[in-house]
C-alpha cells in the first residue's frame, strides 16, 4: 500500500487519507446538532476533495497541473460558501434564537 520498494509515497496513501476525511465529514454533517459544526463538517469534506485533486495532479498529471488549478477554484468556492453560510446562520439565529438544527424546520410541511 505504501509501496516502500520504490521508496516513494504512493497515490493510494493520499486517496485513503482523503476518503477517511470525507467520511468523517459526512458523519459530522449528518449527526451534528450545532449549525456551526455542520458548516465545519462541510469544510472538512471540501478539504478531502482538494486533497484528492492535489494527489492526482501530482502523481498522474505531470506538468499539466490541472488538479492544482481546480483546487484553487474549489478553495475560492469554499470561501464564498463559508461566508454566505455563516451569514445565513446569523440571520437564522436572530430569528429563532437557537443554533439547534432540529429547530430549523421552517420549510417542513
Amino acid at each position: 500500500m505504501f509501496d516502500l520498494s520504490q521508496g516513494i509515497l504512493s497515490l493510494q496513501a493520499y486517496l485513503l487519507l482523503a476518503a477517511f476525511l470525507f467520511c468523517i465529514g459526512v458523519w459530522g454533517l449528518i449527526n451534528s446538532r450545532n449549525a456551526v459544526r455542520v458548516l465545519m463538517s462541510i469544510e472538512l469534506m471540501l478539504n478531502a476533495v482538494n486533497l484528492n485533486l492535489m494527489a492526482f495532479s501530482s502523481y498522474l498529471d505531470g506538468n499539466l497541473i490541472r488538479g492544482q488549478v481546480f483546487a484553487v477554484f474549489v478553495i475560492t468556492v469554499a470561501a464564498a460558501e463559508a461566508a454566505v453560510g455563516l451569514a445565513i446562520l446569523l440571520s437564522l439565529y436572530r430569528n429563532r434564537v437557537t443554533v439547534d438544527m432540529e429547530q430549523f424546520n421552517l420549510l417542513r410541511w
Binding site: 500500500m1 520504490q6 504512493s10 497515490l11 493510494q12 486517496l15 485513503l16 476518503a19 470525507f22 467520511c23 501530482s58 502523481y59 498522474l60 498529471d61 505531470g62 506538468n63 497541473i65
Partner: peptide
C-alpha cells in the same frame, strides 16, 4: 472508496512532476 483506491490500476509512475 478504499476498495476503489486500492483496486483501480492507476497508471503509475505517471509523468515527471514539475
Amino acid at each position: 472508496l478504499v476498495r476503489v483506491a486500492i483496486i483501480t490500476p492507476w497508471p503509475l509512475p505517471g509523468p515527471i512532476a514539475i
